Simulated assay, not measured.
Amino acid sequence: MAAQQVPMNVPRNSLERASTIDVLVVDDDTDTIEELVEYLSKAGLTCKAAADGWAALKLLADGFKPGVVVTDLRMPEMDGMEFVEQLRQFNDRERPEVIFVSGHAGFDDAVAAIRLGARDMLTKPIDPSKLVRAVKSAQLTRQVRRQPDPAAEPRAEDTKGTSGMMAERTPGKDLVARKRAALADLRTIRRTRDQYFPSDLFSDPCWEMLLDLYDAKLVGGEVTVTSLGAASGVPLTTALRRMEALQSHGLIVRVEDAGDRRRTIIRLTTPGLQAVESFFESHLGRSGA
């Protein structure tokens, strides 16, 4: 989607004075903004609101740093998709996680949103608890994504201070970061592959589904049937058949969402998780990561 580029070059001193907020809410409907901000504020989250994509970009250029953006899909002049395209100007550590909200989103919209890296797409009228869960899940995802690259970390012997104390290490977080980096590499290979080969040669979505479920497990997120189907890149009917195949092999399980009975959560089973874990342990071992 072509969109006019908005410069995001902010002087360093402006960035240092930047105001960090939990959520930036973007919607052209003032009633919706008030409603969403109220829900999020009651959950203890700090919010800033913008009436459209241009106003949101102005806030970002002025130095506001949201961890999560909750944006309407349909807006005049600059819609939600175009706005999120602009967020790609941020580096990976600074870019906020994105949650779309819409009253008329279709399957194609969900696919486009997932491809832009959106964490979730919520339908109006918004359920407050569902919104808060989605935002907190996105916060956790961003927290993991912002972990330092283990390959760039100094060696232990280089982290000794004048007192001879060693810098505190967090091996558990390092391992999660390494696994998520490996996930990103596999997805990059898939995108590169699709540039040179007909995509229908590699159209079975089972592996992509397992990767998405494993990624969610690493960051403590939840994956619904709808979002998993959208992310698979195949028609929903095909995605549902492949979910049934994965379930018949004991790799995934369906769980009813206790907070919203209209949603069904998909999770890796214990054998499914062990299988994917074993794959990544082997992959990381061979790559020397």
Rank of each mutant, 00 (worst) to 15 (best):
R119Y: 06
R119E: 15
R119V: 04
R119A: 12
D120Q: 10
D120A: 06
D120G: 00
D120P: 01
M121C: 03
M121F: 03
M121A: 01
L122T: 01
L122F: 09
L122I: 02
L122D: 03
L122G: 05
T123Y: 01
T123N: 01
T123P: 00
T123D: 01
T123H: 07
K124S: 06
P125L: 06
P125H: 04
P125M: 11
P125G: 01
P125Y: 01
I126F: 04
I126D: 08
I126W: 02
D127L: 04
D127H: 03
D127W: 01
P128L: 05
P128F: 04
P128D: 07
P128S: 04
S129L: 14
S129I: 11
S129R: 15
K130E: 13
K130T: 10
K130G: 12
K130C: 13
K130P: 00
L131T: 02
L131N: 01
V132Q: 11
V132R: 03
V132D: 02
V132K: 08
V132S: 07
V132H: 13
R133I: 00
R133E: 06
R133Q: 04
R133P: 00
R133K: 06
R133C: 01
A134V: 03
A134E: 07
V135K: 12
V135E: 06
V135R: 00
K136E: 12
K136S: 07
S137Y: 09
S137D: 10
A138K: 05
A138M: 06
A138G: 00
Q139T: 10
Q139C: 13
Q139I: 11
Q139E: 14
Q139N: 04
L140Y: 05
L140E: 10
T141H: 10
T141E: 09
R142F: 07
R142Q: 09
Q143F: 07
V144S: 09
V144Q: 13
V144T: 11
V144P: 02
V144Y: 07
V144F: 08
R145K: 11
R145G: 14
R146D: 15
R146K: 15
Q147C: 04
Q147N: 05
Q147F: 12
P148W: 08
P148R: 08
P148T: 08
P148Y: 09
P148I: 05
D149E: 05
D149S: 03
D149V: 07
D149I: 02
P150N: 10
A151L: 12
A151M: 10
A151S: 13
A151P: 02
A152N: 15
E153P: 05
E153I: 08
E153C: 15
P154D: 14
P154L: 15
R155D: 14
R155L: 11
R155N: 08
R155T: 05
A156R: 10
E157D: 07
E157M: 09
E157L: 12
E157H: 10
D158Q: 15
D158W: 14
T159Q: 12
T159C: 09
K160Q: 15
K160V: 13
K160T: 01
G161K: 06
G161Q: 12
G161I: 02
G161W: 04
G161N: 15
T162P: 01
T162L: 13
T162K: 11
S163V: 04
S163L: 12
S163P: 03
S163Y: 03
G164C: 15
G164R: 10
G164P: 11
G164A: 07
G164Q: 13
G164Y: 12
G164N: 14
G164E: 13
